[in-house]
């Protein structure tokens, strides 16, 4: 309705944008079409979550107790917090940095290559579990192809303390899906960087370094950090790959929980597993709150 032509005119008219439906009657009526969604969420998400939190506070006789949580921080269970968080942090850092580097090289290629890599990245980001574990055994195991090739070139990766079943090995394996995930999520942010900005910076006398520091970093930092946190959560909760790789030798939180609840232990430990699961949610909430805060304080609107 304004004199100037506006794109997406439909939603700009005299306050009759998307909100005009919402004026219908009282506000709760407008939630009616969302009822199936809310019901689905309530039953399949909220319901299980309340149960697990409740059960984490029960002992074997169904009485309220903090004992499970006290147990969580003792011995191997307490140690697993440290191992899990450290491993996830390193894995996220490596995945984010390497992934960002690869993504920034990919955006400079032709559109066909970009499409192919995006499709491949979506496959690789979803690999995990046994297939991934065996691929790395075939490649980086003691008899693996890559191991032998590197040995031939004079670098024995097993010369030190490295094994595929240690933290370092797990981090290497996780990189196989962390890096593609970073590429997948970070690329759109990179594609929003317009060549004009580089030209503008150059024409104003900026060096490559000032462009990187003054334009790229402020622009991409929020996307970078938020994706890195996503990678953290991704490796923190990874279970299938860890289980396939370590066979229980590494004290990772998901593995311990899996052992606790998956049959062959005394019944008492069911509730300990639930308390551990609640603790994992707690760690995740802290990490994701950072994610939300970063998004909120990012100056660049998407």
């Amino acid at each position: 309705m304004s004199l100037t032509t506006t794109k997406r005119a439909g939603s700009l008219k005299t306050g009759v944008g998307p909100l005009h439906f919402a004026n219908k009657g009282n506000s709760y009526k407008s939630a009616l079409p969302l009822l199936p969604f809310f019901a689905f969420i309530a039953y399949f998400l909220v319901f299980p979550l309340t149960f697990i939190v409740r059960d984490a506070f029960l002992d074997n006789d169904g009485k309220f107790t903090f004992e499970n949580f006290a147990e969580c921080f003792k011995g191997v269970y307490g140690h697993s917090f440290f191992v899990s968080i450290q491993l996830s942090f390193i894995s996220a850092a490596i995945g984010a940095v390497v992934g960002a580097l690869i993504a920034s090289a990919i955006v400079k290629t032709g559109s066909r290559f970009r499409k192919a890599t995006a499709a491949s990245a979506s496959v690789l980001a979803n690999t995990g579990g046994v297939p991934l574990a065996f691929m790395f055994l075939a490649g980086f195991g003691t008899e693996g192809l890559v191991t032998r090739a590197l040995k031939f070139l004079g670098w024995n990766i097993y010369g030190g303390t490295f094994t595929l079943f240690s933290s370092a090995g797990i981090i290497l394996v996780y990189s196989f899906f962390q890096i593609p995930l970073m590429v997948l999520i970070f690329s759109p942010a990179l594609e929003n960087v317009r060549p004009e900005w580089r030209e503008a910076s150059d024409s104003l006398g900026g060096t490559r370094l000032t462009y990187f520091r003054r334009v790229m970093v402020p622009l991409l930092f929020p996307a970078f950090i938020s994706t890195a946190l996503l990678l953290f959560a991704n490796s923190f909760s990874a279970y299938a790959t860890a289980r396939a790789m370590t066979a229980g030798t590494l004290p990772l939180m998901p593995l311990l929980i899996g052992n606790l609840v998956d049959g062959n232990v005394i019944a008492n430990q069911q509730h300990l597993g639930q308390a551990m699961a609640v603790c994992m949610i707690g760690v995740s909430i802290i990490v994701m709150s950072i994610y939300v805060l970063v998004l909120r304080f990012s100056k660049v609107k998407r």
């Binding site: 309705m1 304004s2 005299t14 009759v16």
Partner: peptide, 15 residues
């Protein structure tokens, strides 16, 4: 802009 002319039309349309 904002004089209500579009509102009148949209009411007639049922939108």
């Amino acid at each position: 802009s904002g004089c209500g002319k579009t509102t009148a039309l949209r009411i007639l349309a049922g939108l």
